[in-house]
């Protein structure tokens, strides 16, 4: 286990250094997030629908599609000089490759969300100060689940044509449960309702994380076989 984690960290660190150096995907994701929030803000009619009713859905649509950019690039990096082949030959477990990619993707998506959340508050003027802790917790809970599934799909599609097109098509149906949960919980939090009202959704989010992290870890080695 220690060796797997060490190799996973080596891989994740390499991916983050590469991203820090090129800044292509992170900049695209952040700009995308800002633009989407701005368009939704100016596109809505404030006299027809209250911001607080729309805000949770808008937040999660934005985070989901921004995360796609990260997930798309996760294994594209490994096509550089066929580095993926080198990883598969190296004496490291396939699990460490998956966990390394997952960790890097989580950091990447977390950065996008960290930029997106203040913009969301700014544009929609929703009260988050009192619920910031639980809100961050829900964002983390939902993000782990969909990044776990997305990382697996990204590996499956990396050698296919139109991978960037196929990823959202295949991934979005799997994201329906965590997104529904995340939207429901976010809506209740922003309306200052007690968390006990959404205990079921929170359990669903936690269960989704456990089930799909386990499944993705078990399935990943089969997705990268030649």
């Amino acid at each position: 286990m220690g060796e797997t984690l060490r190799h996973a960290w080596t891989l994740a660190r390499k991916d983050l250094v590469l991203e820090f150096r090129t800044r292509t995907a992170i900049l695209s994701a952040v700009v995308f997030t800002a633009l989407v929030l701005m368009v939704f803000n100016f596109g809505r009619d404030p006299s027809a629908v209250a911001a607080i009713d729309l805000a949770p859905s808008i937040l999660w649509v934005t985070f989901t599609f921004a995360a796609m950019l990260a997930l798309n690039r996760a294994f594209q990096l490994e096509l550089d000089n066929q580095a993926l082949e080198g990883l598969l030959v190296a004496p490291i477990s396939r699990t460490s490759i998956y966990w390394g990619k997952l960790a890097a993707n989580l950091v990447f998506v977390a950065v996008v969300e960290a930029v997106g959340l203040p913009l969301f508050v700014l544009f929609f003027n929703v009260p988050v100060a009192d619920v910031l802790g639980p809100l961050v917790g829900v964002i983390a809970l939902a993000t782990v689940g969909f990044v776990a599934v997305g990382t697996l799909f990204s590996a499956m599609l990396v050698r296919t044509r139109f991978a960037e097109l196929m990823l959202p098509v295949l991934l979005l149906p799997f994201l329906i449960p965590p997104l529904m949960g995340a939207v429901q919980v976010t809506a209740r939090l922003l309306a200052a309702r007690p968390l006990s009202e959404v205990a079921g959704w929170l359990r669903l989010l936690a269960a989704y994380d456990v089930v799909f992290l386990t499944l993705a870890t078990l399935l990943f080695p089969h997705t990268v076989e030649q």
Binding site: L18, R21, L77, D80, Q82, A83, E85
Partner: peptide
């Protein structure tokens, strides 16, 4: 193999250190 298995945006030294770590 036919390809170098090196990352274009890392330096030569960084690439070698990365692979050295993976090969323990």
């Amino acid at each position: 193999g036919h390809q170098a298995h090196l990352y274009g945006h890392l330096t030569v030294r960084e690439n070698l250190l990365f692979w050295a770590a993976l090969y323990d």
